[in-house]
């Protein structure tokens, strides 16, 4: 019957529009892999060049004169800021590319919503980490980065692939565990921001492409 196929098509179109208008599906999985590599590179720079080959940076800091500790803290925060900036640029670059390839718009009401929901916890975490840094409270910095980033992902998960939600949960767990094991921040940074991103990126690339 003619009206029958029309109804089926209508329902298909409705489902598609509901999905596309409520979730940002141009988020690139491949960018996750590159973000992970950037995070690991940042950790290696910190390890070899800033901390002079010391994993336990808490003790390293404690044994330094105040002036030197201050300058090191700024080097570490610049290192982290560069990693963050590169990560954001990579995510934007690959996602814009993916949107273009699929003939979709990148800047839509839903990508704006995604961004706002991501940025509120992330910005809060950034300010909080900055305060910790000023107070020389070094050992909670990596746990805080991981926890607030995880919360940001959980919050943004509603507006993109559901997998982001689970990545967020894993980041939160990693952050909480790392708070229990002070001094191993670099290792947890490499695991949370490096390895988890790479695994996530590869999984998304296999499942959705690009």
């Amino acid at each position: 019957m003619k009206s029958d196929t029309k109804s089926i098509e209508d329902i298909k179109a409705i489902r598609k529009i509901m999905e596309e208008s409520s979730r940002f599906l141009s988020l690139s999985g491949l960018s996750g892999v590159f973000i992970g590599i950037t995070a690991i590179a940042g950790a290696l720079v910190a390890y070899f060049f800033i901390l002079d080959g010391s994993i336990h940076y808490n003790e390293y800091f404690r044994n330094l004169p105040a002036e030197e500790s201050f300058s090191l803290r700024w080097q570490l925060i610049s290192d982290a800021a560069i990693v963050l900036l590169l990560s954001v640029l990579l995510a934007l670059f690959f996602s814009i590319k993916k949107a273009k390839r699929d003939g979709k718009n990148f800047w839509t009401p839903i990508s704006r919503r995604l961004l706002i929901n991501l940025l509120i916890p992330l910005f809060t975490g950034g300010v909080f980490v900055f305060i910790l840094m000023l107070q020389n409270n070094i050992q909670l910095i990596v746990p805080c980065f991981l926890i607030f980033y995880g919360l940001a992902l959980v919050n943004a998960g509603k507006f993109t692939f559901g997998e982001i939600f689970y990545l967020g949960i894993l980041e939160i767990i990693t952050g909480l565990v790392s708070a229990f094991v002070p001094g191993w921040g670099l290792i947890f940074w490499i695991f949370g921001f490096g390895i988890l991103h790479i695994i996530y990126g590869l999984a998304m690339f296999r499942k959705y492409g690009a």
């Binding site: 209508d10 179109a13 409705i14 529009i17 509901m18 208008s21 409520s22 839509t108 009401p109 839903i110």
Partner: peptide, 18 residues
């Protein structure tokens, strides 16, 4: 109209350009 309603069923608000 089906499209408009589909969008507004899953989003609280949506602007004209969107």
């Amino acid at each position: 109209r089906l499209g408009i309603m589909s969008v507004l069923m899953v989003n609280e608000t949506y602007d004209f350009n969107g």
